[in-house]
Amino acid sequence: MKLITNTDSLKKEFKRLVKQYRNFQWAMAWASAGNELFVELIENRCKINKITVGIHFYQTHPDFIKEFIDDENVRFIEQPDGTFHPKVYLFSNEKKDWELLIGSANFTASAFTKNTEVCALVNAKDNNAEEVYQSTLQIIDSSFDQAKIFSESDWENYNTIWNIQQSKIQSLSGQYGSAKDKPKPAYKIALQTKSWNDYIDEIYDEGKSIIKRRIRVIEIAKELFQSVRHFKELDDNERKFIAGLPTNLKHTISGAEDWAFFGSMKGAGKFSKLINDNSDLISKALDEIPISGHIEKTNYDSFLEYFTEALPGNYLATSTRLLAMKRPDIFVCYDSKNNDALCRDFEINKSGMNHERYWNEIILRINDCEWYQKPTPTNAMERKISLARSAFLDSLYYEG
């Protein structure tokens, strides 16, 4: 028996086993595709006798499943009682010529490149080899019998839900997207563990008179969006108010003079022209964000598709101003007056911030914050703040 404790040795042994043996019988919790071991498996798929893969927690990549649609030798455990969690790889030529790799490693790229894994390599000459062999076969066979062959429709349904679940999986792992900087664990970031009481106390530091004015801006924006079906149906001054541009709306709506709260876009010339010209693309972008209910990444991506067609480039401040006005419960305007402090407290790198990172590293982090998840307002003002609690981060981080 041999103990394997590093990924280089694990990969080396696995490649040797794939080449040396004619018969693969495996059972593993998760699998991924696109890595070099997956490529070797496909090149040697004629050797597959029985492979059973779990799909619990949507950790198995759809590309792996797709490769084995309608394959009778590769099956998937759908929803077991508990979690299907073995990592057993039996390689054999005949009954007395076999090796077994067993331990913590799933058939994933991470397991063979960067994870900390420990596996034991057992062969037919080891003590109690026959007992180990028979027990392993029993586990593999029973797993295989419980599993099912995936059809094209099974894969399509799984792929749909897998895509939906990815943001949850990333946030649970602390990754929040594909940032190059190694993320700090969420429990060590003060902003994410801050309670509602601490959050609201910091909001109050701005002064209640300012807070009331901020609330009024949120209320006006909501009233404007609810008054029409499409952004383009608002008049010039109403659109400018939403967009954070100088407006004469104060002559007809009390409180509209504070249009610059939550991000002034006064210096954004190209954006200003689009708003003045009543861009159909900007209106279509905002149509993709529902006025209430859950916001999916697909909503955000659809918004960006129209917005960036209208204004190509990395115009985060202007796009997030619009988003924060339509859904202040979800979005915060990310601009030059608050991004230094916001990135500092989330402990993320401001350099290279773009729309994808904004969603993954800011919005998903906000969603996981204690103060965001569990608001406990005690009065009318706090209730109004709670309905715009993402946008109100500007109150905490504005440096002007």
Results as ranks from 00 to 15, higher is better:
1 M>Y: 10
7 T>Y: 07
15 K>W: 08
20 Q>N: 13
22 R>Y: 11
22 R>K: 13
23 N>D: 15
31 A>C: 05
33 A>T: 08
35 N>D: 15
40 E>I: 04
41 L>W: 01
42 I>L: 15
48 I>E: 03
51 I>K: 02
56 H>R: 14
59 Q>W: 12
64 F>G: 04
66 K>V: 07
68 F>Y: 01
70 D>S: 08
72 E>V: 09
72 E>Y: 08
72 E>H: 05
73 N>K: 12
77 I>F: 03
82 G>P: 04
83 T>R: 14
93 N>D: 05
100 L>W: 04
100 L>M: 01
101 L>N: 00
102 I>E: 06
106 N>I: 01
108 T>I: 04
110 S>F: 13
112 F>T: 00
115 N>R: 15
116 T>V: 15
119 C>L: 13
121 L>M: 02
123 N>F: 02
124 A>L: 09
129 A>P: 06
133 Y>V: 01
136 T>P: 00
138 Q>G: 10
138 Q>T: 15
145 D>Q: 14
151 S>C: 06
151 S>L: 07
151 S>I: 03
152 E>S: 10
153 S>E: 14
155 W>M: 06
157 N>T: 14
159 N>S: 15
160 T>R: 09
160 T>N: 11
162 W>L: 11
163 N>H: 13
164 I>C: 11
168 K>P: 02
178 S>C: 10
181 D>T: 15
184 K>D: 09
185 P>W: 10
187 Y>Q: 15
189 I>W: 10
190 A>K: 14
192 Q>L: 15
194 K>S: 13
197 N>D: 15
197 N>I: 14
202 E>M: 05
206 E>R: 14
210 I>W: 12
213 R>T: 04
217 V>L: 03
220 I>L: 03
222 K>F: 07
224 L>V: 01
234 L>G: 04
235 D>I: 08
239 R>A: 05
239 R>I: 04
240 K>S: 10
246 P>W: 07
248 N>I: 00
248 N>D: 10
252 T>C: 05
254 S>G: 14
258 D>Y: 12
261 F>P: 00
262 F>Q: 00
265 M>V: 07
289 I>A: 02
290 P>E: 07
291 I>F: 09
296 E>A: 11
297 K>Y: 12
300 Y>A: 02
301 D>A: 08
305 E>T: 09
306 Y>P: 05
306 Y>F: 13
310 A>R: 06
316 L>D: 06
318 T>P: 08
323 L>Y: 00
329 D>W: 04
330 I>E: 11
332 V>D: 02
333 C>G: 03
335 D>I: 07
337 K>V: 09
338 N>W: 01
340 D>T: 13
341 A>F: 11
342 L>N: 07
343 C>M: 00
350 K>S: 11
350 K>Y: 14
356 E>H: 11
357 R>C: 04
363 I>L: 07
365 R>S: 05
367 N>M: 14
371 W>Q: 08
387 L>G: 08
390 S>F: 01
394 D>R: 08
